[in-house]
């Protein structure tokens, strides 16, 4: 690995971080409003399937994205109704969504395409076009020019979308009445209720946003990264996003940085394969396990100092104290 690789490595890290960011921010809305969301993984998977299927039919990535978002919102709302209206166990519901997603995507995939659960490969027209800025105004400094081009190249509109989502979430959370209410809803719903705002409606609104973002995360996996939907293509990213949300202390900018960290270890993988330390070959699997180990280490460090929403996971019953 030499110095010139670094921009490329960073660019690859950023690309890998996008689904994590979408999913973690989705989780942020749900959890800040008081719904613990273990189901990010499943909603990403369903979103990815919908994106792959719709984009291949429509031949247009934007329609695929919309399809993924629609499915995401539908599932989030079902999860929301079961959590809020029927006061279900939010952990169990999230797990159930993940399991249903694993089965349903493959079941429907086989029924529709008979390709072992995979959707048809997307032609170029059905995928987001990558941007490739040349930074020609930097011709005088070729090293910087190639570095910047390497860093900025190969991204799609969804990369921008993820960063905009973080920025907007920051503004909404700290500078809007919606954010104020959402914070109250996750910390002390009875305070919000007695202030004349419906806790239920607040949570449903948060779940709609959650679904849109989960859909976007899935669409990125299928349309940008995979070029099709593959079975179990999330591979634990929903859980990693949840870990990022916890280690990021439910704060959008910190969550973004943690997602970058996870993605960077993932991106390093391809560079580190075949690495040997002190003449002993490091097994590929050890390198592949890095993001998971990192997630556990980060969670172990965070313990005790969290900003976790106080009422998270507890169904709200009106008038109860």
């Amino acid at each position: 690995m030499d110095f010139a690789d670094i921009p490329l490595l960073l660019a690859s890290a950023i690309r890998l971080s996008i689904p994590l960011i979408f999913a973690a921010i989705a989780g942020l809305y749900a959890e800040r409003s008081g719904i613990i969301d273990i189901g990010l993984e499943g909603k990403m998977l369903l979103g990815a399937f919908a994106a792959g299927a719709v984009a291949s039919v429509a031949g247009n990535p934007y329609v695929g994205l919309l399809g993924a978002m629609a499915v995401g919102v539908m599932v989030s709302l079902v999860q929301g109704v079961a959590s809020v209206r029927f006061r279900g166990n939010q952990l169990v519901l999230g797990l159930a969504i993940n399991i249903i997603a694993t089965g349903l995507t493959v079941f429907v995939g086989i029924a529709l395409y008979a390709r072992g659960g995979q959707t048809p490969p997307l032609p170029d027209g059905a995928r987001f076009s990558a941007i490739a800025p040349q930074f020609s105004w930097l011709e005088g400094v070729p090293a910087l020019q190639s570095a910047l081009a390497g860093l900025a190249g190969g991204h799609t509109i969804l990369t921008l979308g993820a960063f905009v989502a973080v920025a907007v979430t920051y503004l909404v959370l700290y500078h809007s009445s919606f954010g104020l209410r959402m914070y109250a809803c996750g910390d002390k719903p009875e305070a919000l209720d007695s202030a004349g705002v419906s806790v239920y409606r607040m949570r449903y609104q948060a779940m709609v946003i959650n679904g849109l973002l989960c859909g976007a995360a899935g669409a990125y996996l299928a349309i940008v990264q995979g070029g099709a939907f593959y079975r179990d293509m999330t591979a634990g990213q929903g859980y990693l996003a949840l870990a990022a949300l916890i280690f990021g202390n439910w704060k959008p900018v910190r969550v973004l940085l943690v997602c970058q960290l996870f993605a960077a270890t993932d991106a390093l993988q391809s560079r580190l394969q075949g690495l040997s330390i002190a003449e002993v070959d490091v097994p590929v699997q050890a390198i592949q396990a890095m993001p998971y180990v990192l997630a556990i280490l980060l969670l172990a460090i965070t313990a005790g100092k969290s900003e976790a929403p106080l009422a998270g996971g507890k169904p709200y019953t009106k008038g109860q104290r």
Binding site: A82, G88, L91, L95, A96, G103, F107, G117
Partner: peptide
């Protein structure tokens, strides 16, 4: 995989409904 879906649904109903 219909069995996986059934299993997920059972978990969903046990937790939610």
């Amino acid at each position: 995989e219909v069995v996986v879906v059934l299993q997920g649904l059972v978990i969903f109903f046990a937790g939610g409904l």
